[in-house]
C-alpha cells in the first residue's frame, strides 16, 4: 500500500510562457562572438592598413565590401550587435520603468529602431555598388571606370 502525499499548498498560477531564458542564453553566446568580431574589425580597419585611421575613406570601404568575407563579417556584426544591444536596453527598460504603458511603448520602439537598422544595414551591405552605372561622373570616386 502506498500513500500519495499531497502538496500542502495550491500551485502558483503561472504567467504565460516567456522567452527570458532564450534572451539570457543569446546574450551570453553573442557576447564572446561580438568581442572577436569587433576587435578584428577594429584591427583590420585601423591598425593593419598603412596610414592607420587616416587610410579609411570611401575607397577603403568599397574595397572591403567587394570581398564576400567582409560582407558576411559585417553582416554578423550588424545583426549580433544590434540585437544584443537592443535586448540589453529592453532589460534596462523592464527594470526601471514603472508604468506598463511606458514600458510597452519603449520596448516596442526599441525593436522598431533595431529592425529598421538591421534591414537598412543588410540592404546596404549586399547591394552596395561604389560605381553605379549611369551616375554623373563628378559624383563617383576616382577609381571607377567611368571616371578614368
Amino acid at each position: 500500500m502506498s500513500i500519495v502525499i499531497e502538496t500542502p499548498n495550491s500551485p502558483r498560477t503561472r504567467s504565460q510562457a516567456n522567452l527570458e531564458k532564450y534572451g539570457w542564453v543569446f546574450m551570453r553566446i553573442s557576447g564572446p562572438f561580438l568581442i572577436v568580431l569587433i576587435f578584428v574589425h577594429l584591427i583590420s580597419n585601423l591598425v593593419v592598413p598603412d596610414g592607420g585611421i587616416k587610410a579609411i575613406d570611401f575607397a577603403f570601404v568599397a574595397g572591403k565590401w567587394a570581398a564576400p568575407f567582409w560582407q558576411w563579417w559585417d553582416l554578423a556584426m550588424l545583426w549580433l550587435a544590434l540585437i544584443h544591444g537592443t535586448n540589453g536596453m529592453r532589460t534596462v527598460v523592464n527594470d526601471y520603468t514603472e508604468k506598463e504603458g511606458v514600458r510597452k511603448t519603449l520596448v516596442f520602439s526599441l525593436w522598431g529602431v533595431c529592425s529598421a537598422l538591421i534591414l537598412l544595414g543588410t540592404l546596404v551591405i549586399f547591394t552596395f555598388d561604389p560605381c553605379p552605372a549611369g551616375a554623373a561622373a563628378e559624383l563617383l570616386p576616382s577609381f571607377c571606370p567611368a571616371v578614368q
Partner: peptide, 20 residues
Amino acid sequence: EGAEVRLDILNDKEGVWRCR
C-alpha cells in the same frame, strides 16, 4: 523530488532571469 516543479516556477518572467 520536486526540482522540476521549482525550476519551472523560477523560469518565470519574474524568476531567475531577472537577476543581473
